[in-house]
Simulated scan of single mutants.
Amino acid sequence: MSASDPAIEVRGLGVRFRRNRRGRRSLKDLFAGAKRRTRPGEFWALRDVSFDVRPGDSIGVVGRNGQGKSTLLKLVAGVLLPDEGAVTVSGGVAPLIEITGGFVGDLTVRENVRLAAGLHGMSRAEVDGRFDGIIAFAEIDEFVDMPYKHLSNGMKVRLAFSVVSQLDEPILLVDEVLAVGDRAFREKCYMRIDELLAEGRTLFFVSHNEKDLRRFCTRGLYLDKGRLAMDAPIAEVLDRYNADYT
């Protein structure tokens, strides 16, 4: 990928969900094509969303709850598939979304680090070389050989952030993870993200925290009712968002 090619390219993106079991799509519907009439009980979480993200961009995604922000992040991460349009991602992603998912309660912390890092593409040698740093960052040195399920929720989040932030992927996806943990650890996370951005990583950041958005992002995407209402410098987007909902 050259510096002029988009790191993330989104075209005509649409995602549809069901509110309940009524209106469930049949197998015939699933193979009938991308554009279909909305059935009873279905709604569009995102519709006709298009934008590009360049390598090194720092993008903040804003909007009220239920406007499609986390859905958009999951589409970029490859967790969800669109009903309409397409998402093209050039390069790997380091997903800080639902970050405690994928850990196994009965395995030890040590075993979980190796498992989680391996699932994200780290080799055994890379995991071994970074293991001490991962544990030290998470501040759980004395719990390495304890079953993961016995960690507190805060410890689990610290461990997950520590693993994912060690990945070498060029695109960093973040969804409200900085809202958890104590103040000292949040600042530690901020500093780590600053380091990654200084390396030229691309940031795609969903948050309700205006201070965090202004700190990390230069550009904003404002989602309203599942559509892209504004794509502009982050300060302008936040001003528009605040004006709409204050």
Rank of each mutant, 00 (worst) to 15 (best):
G129R: 09
A243R: 15
M146G: 01
V93M: 03
D168G: 13
S2T: 14
F43Y: 15
S26P: 12
D52H: 14
M191Y: 06
M230R: 15
F103L: 02
N209D: 15
G85A: 09
I135L: 03
C189H: 03
I135C: 06
E42L: 08
V109W: 00
F131H: 02
V180Q: 10
L13C: 11
L107K: 01
V15Q: 12
C217E: 00
D52K: 13
L81G: 10
V164M: 11
G56Q: 11
I140Q: 01
G12Y: 07
D57I: 07
S123M: 05
L107I: 01
M155W: 04
M230W: 07
R25W: 14
R124K: 12
V87T: 08
L46Q: 05
F31D: 05
V164D: 03
K74D: 12
R25N: 11
E169I: 01
E195S: 13
G23K: 06
D48T: 03
P40I: 13
R114N: 02
R21L: 15
F161G: 00
Q67R: 12
L238M: 15
D145N: 12
A198Y: 05
T100P: 01
R16D: 03
A229M: 06
N65C: 06
T246Y: 14
R130I: 04
N112K: 01
A94H: 06
V61Y: 11
D239S: 12
R47G: 04
E195G: 13
R158Y: 00
S70W: 08
R24N: 08
G118D: 05
V127W: 00
L159E: 01
E126M: 01
V127A: 10
V61L: 14
D141W: 03
M230K: 15
D175W: 08
V89W: 07
V53A: 13
M191F: 02
E187W: 10
N65W: 05
V62R: 01
F51K: 06
R186P: 00
T100M: 04
A138C: 08
M122W: 00
K35S: 12
G133H: 10
I8V: 15
E84A: 13
V76M: 04
